[in-house]
């Protein structure tokens, strides 16, 4: 039994489909999942008064993998990611990143990770250059000017560099936010709907940059998205949540086969209705 399988919440999987089985296989083109994981979510729960936003969630993200966290609105994705970031303290269970409990030891690992979310903005009154400088210094980036130059080139930010961030278009803001998320060359990258406000062309452009970064750095990426095409393109593995629980997980193609669906989009809709 692989490490991933041990963390599968069988109880919920069975509720969704009697045919549902954990992901199989250990392909040679991916890092070994039996290594210490980059992210380990263990019995994670979050209760707000009487409501369980996250209810007994377990999964791991092996180092170097890109894992998609999917689910409809209110499924518990953002709360789960917030607990992995240490912004929210779990009611029970724990979220570990690079071996550190994010509720109690987050300061030991924050410089090795970063995140991007459309719900969190960069200071709008600062120019793009000023924002990158400030966050670069906060993360203690060595050779900051050179790193910013790299990001300017990678994300084609040259023409907006001295413009005020708040006055950029949604697409430009996303590019700047992703550039900020990569400023410290993070080992672990958390992305909350990274292409939410982009047109298909720009979204594909951002995905290509993320793929290139992941390949170059060997980074671990956990992303939440409503865009199933994006998830199929980027993710090695997918965790689907509904009503605060994990209802299925596996490789995108395996999930489609398992639920006898054409693609992940159909799996998502099927699970949203059944679970």
């Amino acid at each position: 039994m692989s490490r991933i399988e041990r963390f599968l919440p069988r109880r919920h999987l069975t509720q969704v489909s009697p045919n549902a089985t954990p992901a199989q296989g250990n392909p040679s083109d991916l890092p070994n999942p039996d290594e210490a994981p980059a992210i380990a979510v263990e019995d994670l729960c979050k209760q707000y008064r009487t409501h369980w936003a996250v209810d007994d969630v377990n999964f791991i993200v092996p180092k170097g993998w890109t894992v998609g966290l999917l689910g409809g609105n209110g499924a518990g994705k953002t709360t789960t990611i917030a607990m992995i970031m240490g912004l929210v303290v779990p009611s029970f269970g724990r979220a570990m990143v690079l071996g550190h409990d994010m509720a109690t030891e987050r300061h030991k690992v924050l410089s090795r990770m970063n995140f991007e979310s459309p719900y969190v903005a960069l200071p709008g009154r600062l120019t793009v250059r000023q924002n990158l400088m400030v966050f670069g210094r906060l993360y203690g980036v060595a050779n900051l000017k050179a790193r910013i130059e790299e990001l300017i080139e990678d994300f084609e930010l040259g023409d907006v560099l001295d413009r005020v961030t708040g006055r950029l278009s949604a697409g430009q803001k996303t590019r700047v936010a992703v550039a900020k998320a990569l400023i410290n060359d993070p080992e672990v990258l958390l992305l909350d709907e990274p292409t939410a406000s982009l047109d298909p062309d720009r979204a594909e452009w951002v995905r290509s940059r993320l793929r290139a970064y992941q390949k170059r750095r060997g980074a671990t990426i956990l992303l939440s998205s409503h865009n199933m095409t994006e998830v199929e393109q980027l993710c090695d593995f997918v965790v689907i949540m509904s009503h605060g629980r994990v209802v299925a997980m596996g490789r995108p193609r395996e999930l489609a086969e398992r639920f006898k669906c054409r693609d992940l989009d159909e799996v998502f809709i099927y699970l949203a209705r059944v679970a």
Binding site: M85, G86, L87, H107, L110, S111, M113, N114, F115, S117, Y119, V120, A121, L122, P123, F135, L138, Y139, G140, K180
Partner: peptide, 9 residues
């Protein structure tokens, strides 16, 4: 911007 700061070191 608070979450960006709280997520930074």
């Amino acid at each position: 911007n608070l979450a960006n700061l709280m997520m930074s070191p």
